[in-house]
C-alpha cells in the first residue's frame, strides 16, 4: 500500500507546482498554458479521490472551456506592466499570507478523522426513492434540486450579462482543409458522447452538466474552424434555447404543489423519468449558455428581439 502514498505525494506536489507556475510565470501566455495543465492534473486528482463526475467536469469545463476562453482573450490583453511593488511590501504580504495559510493547513488537518453526518447516511438509505441509482445525480437532481435550479439561474444571469455587453468574438477560423477535417471527425463524436453522458448519468458518473459542456466544446470546435455554412441561430430560437432548461425545471417542480406536496417533490415512481426529462432540457440550455460564455458576446446585433422600429410604442 506504500505505493499509493507515493503516488498521492507526487500528485499533490504536481498540483501545487503547476498552481505556483500558473500564478507566478512571467508572461500571461505561459500562465494560461500552465493553468490548462493544472486543470488536467486536478482532473486526475478527482479521479484518484473516487470522484469520477468531477474528473469529467473538471477536464471539460475547468481545463477545457475555461482554458479556451482564457486563450481567446489573450489577444486583447496587453502583457502585464512590469512594476513589482516595493520589495518590503512583497516580503511582508508574502510572510503574513504564509502564516495565515500555515494556520489554515493545521486547522484543516485537525478536522480529521471525518465521520459521516446524518445527511450522508440519509442519502444512502433513501437512495432508492430518488429515482436514480447514481448517488451524485440523486443529490444533484433530487435531494438538493433547489441548488441545481439556482445554479442554472447563475449560468443564465452570466449568459444574459454577456449577451448585453457587445458583439461576440469573430471566428478566427482560417478554414484550412485540415481543421475542417478535424472538425468533421470531432464534432459528430462530441455530440454522440454528449448523448451517452446524458443517458449514463442516471446510473453512472455523467449527467446534464458534463453532457452540456461536451456540446459546448463541440460549438467551440465549430467556432474555431470558422464554419460559415452552418444555419444562423435565430433570435427567437436563441432565447428558447436559453429558456428550455430552467423553465422545464421550474414547471416540473411546481407540479407537486397542485396536490399539496412540496416544491420539487417528484412522485416516487415517476422520479427517474422526470429527472431524465429535466436533465435533457438542462443539457440543451447549459450547452447554449456555456457557448455564449465562451463567445463573450451576442451573435445578433439587436439582441433580444428584432424590433420593427426601435421606438416601438408600448
Amino acid at each position: 500500500m506504500m505505493i499509493w502514498s507515493v503516488i498521492d505525494i507526487l500528485i499533490c506536489a504536481l498540483v501545487v507546482a503547476l498552481a505556483m507556475a500558473a500564478l507566478y510565470a512571467p508572461a500571461l501566455r505561459q500562465r494560461v498554458m500552465f493553468f490548462i495543465a493544472f486543470g488536467l492534473v486536478v482532473a486526475i486528482t478527482w479521479a484518484r479521490l473516487h470522484a469520477p463526475d468531477l474528473a469529467l467536469a473538471e477536464a471539460i469545463i475547468g481545463a477545457g472551456l475555461t482554458g479556451a476562453m482564457l486563450l481567446m482573450s489573450l489577444d486583447h490583453t496587453s502583457d502585464m506592466p512590469r512594476e513589482p511593488a516595493s520589495y518590503g511590501l512583497r516580503i511582508g504580504s508574502a510572510a503574513m499570507g504564509g502564516v495565515l495559510i500555515l494556520g489554515l493547513m493545521m486547522i484543516v488537518s485537525s478536522l480529521y478523522p471525518i465521520h459521516d453526518g446524518a445527511p450522508t447516511l440519509a442519502v444512502s438509505q433513501r437512495q432508492v426513492e430518488s429515482g436514480v441509482s447514481h448517488p451524485v445525480t440523486a443529490v444533484l437532481l433530487n435531494f438538493r434540486a433547489w441548488d441545481t435550479l439556482l445554479e442554472l439561474a447563475v449560468l443564465l444571469s452570466a449568459a444574459l450579462g454577456i449577451l448585453n455587453l457587445g458583439p461576440a468574438r469573430r471566428s478566427c477560423g482560417h478554414a484550412a482543409s485540415l481543421t475542417d477535417g478535424l472538425a468533421r471527425v470531432l464534432v459528430p463524436l462530441l455530440i454522440l458522447s454528449a448523448g451517452y453522458l446524458l443517458w449514463k448519468g442516471a446510473f453512472a458518473p455523467g449527467g446534464a452538466f458534463q453532457a452540456g459542456a461536451v456540446l459546448a466544446s463541440a460549438a467551440v470546435v465549430i467556432h474555431l474552424t470558422g464554419w460559415e455554412k452552418l444555419p444562423r441561430v435565430g433570435l427567437r430560437s436563441l432565447r428558447l434555447l436559453l429558456l428550455v432548461g430552467p423553465t422545464l425545471f421550474v414547471a416540473v417542480g411546481l407540479l407537486p404543489l397542485l396536490n399539496g406536496q412540496a416544491f420539487l417533490q417528484y412522485p416516487v415512481e415517476l422520479a427517474g423519468l422526470l429527472i431524465l426529462l429535466i436533465e435533457s432540457a438542462a443539457m440543451v440550455s447549459i450547452a447554449g449558455m456555456l457557448t455564449l460564455v465562451y463567445l463573450g458576446g451576442h451573435p445578433h446585433a439587436n439582441w433580444p428581439i428584432e424590433l420593427v422600429n426601435p421606438k416601438e410604442p408600448m
Binding site: N142, F143, R144, W146, Q261, A262, F263
Partner: peptide
Amino acid sequence: FHELGGWSPGLGI
C-alpha cells in the same frame, strides 16, 4: 417552513 422536495431538512434544503 418549507422542506423542498419533501426531504427532511438534514437531507434536502
